[in-house]
C-alpha cells in the first residue's frame, strides 16, 4: 500500500491554528467591552460592538446594560447609538418595575419609541426606531410584535438613502391598521 498524503490535513490544522491565535489576540475582555460601551469618547461603531459583546456574554439580566447603558445610548447625539438601544441585545436586559406583566415591553425603549412626535412628523430616525424596536423577533417581552412588512422595510431603506418618507397621516394609518391585526401566537415559518 503506497503512503497517502496527510499534507491537506496539516495545512487545514495550521490554518485553524492561525485563526485561533488571531482571534485570541483580538479578544476584548468583558470589562473592557463594558468600559468602551459607556465611553462617550469612543466611536459609535466601537460602542455598538462593545455593547453587543457585553450584552451577549452576560448570562443573566444585567441592570448596567438594561438600564444605565440604554439610558446612555438613548441620550446620545448619534442616531445610530440611539437605535442600537432598541435591538434585542439591550432589550433582553430590560429591567421591569415590580408588578409588570411578564410580556410587557422594555419600558425605557417603549417610552422612547412612543414619545410624542417632534414637529408633528415622522423623522427618518423615528421610523427606523419603530421598525427596529417593534419588528424584532422574540416576542413582546423584548418589544417585538408582528413581523415586519414590506412598506416598513421600504421606509427603513428610504430613510437611509434620504428619500422623503410618506406624510404622517399615511404612516399613522398604516401603523394603526397593523396594530389591529391579530397577533398570531403560533408563528408560521
Amino acid at each position: 500500500m503506497k503512503p497517502r498524503s496527510w499534507i491537506p490535513h496539516v495545512a487545514l490544522l495550521a490554518t485553524a491554528a492561525v485563526m485561533v491565535v488571531v482571534a485570541a489576540a483580538k479578544h476584548t475582555s468583558t470589562e473592557e467591552a463594558l468600559r468602551i460601551a459607556f465611553d462617550g469618547e469612543a466611536s459609535t461603531d466601537e460602542r455598538l460592538w462593545a455593547a453587543h459583546l457585553a450584552a451577549n456574554r452576560a448570562t443573566t439580566r444585567e441592570p448596567r446594560l438594561g438600564d444605565a447603558l440604554v439610558r446612555s445610548f438613548l441620550a446620545a447625539d448619534d442616531e445610530r447609538l440611539r437605535e442600537g438601544a432598541l435591538t434585542i441585545d439591550l432589550s433582553r436586559h430590560a429591567i421591569h418595575p415590580p408588578g409588570t406583566r411578564p410580556d410587557a415591553a422594555p419600558p425605557l425603549q417603549s417610552a422612547y419609541v412612543y414619545a410624542a412626535l417632534e414637529d408633528g412628523e415622522y423623522t427618518p430616525h423615528r421610523v427606523r426606531s419603530r421598525v427596529l424596536f417593534r419588528r424584532k423577533v422574540g416576542g413582546s417581552s423584548v418589544g417585538g410584535i408582528r413581523r415586519m412588512a414590506l412598506p416598513e422595510a421600504r421606509w427603513f431603506m428610504d430613510s437611509l438613502r434620504g428619500t422623503p418618507l410618506p406624510p404622517r397621516k399615511e404612516i399613522d394609518r398604516y401603523l394603526i391598521e397593523r396594530s389591529r391585526e391579530p397577533v398570531n401566537l403560533r408563528r408560521p415559518r
Binding site: D45, L48, W49, H52, N56, R80, E83, G84, T87, I88, D89, R92, R128, V131, L132, R135, K136, V137, G138, G139, V142, G144, R147, M148, A149, L150, A153, F156, M157, L160, R187, P188, R189
Partner: peptide
C-alpha cells in the same frame, strides 16, 4: 410581499446594514 421568516431575515439584514452587527433572534 414578504411573509413569516422572510420578514425575520430582512429584519436581520436591516440591522446589519444600519448598525453593522448580526443579532440572534432571541428564540433562535
Amino acid at each position: 410581499d414578504i411573509q413569516s421568516d422572510e420578514a425575520n431575515y430582512l429584519y436581520l439584514a436591516l440591522v446589519k446594514e444600519r448598525l453593522g452587527i448580526y443579532l440572534d433572534q432571541h428564540r433562535y
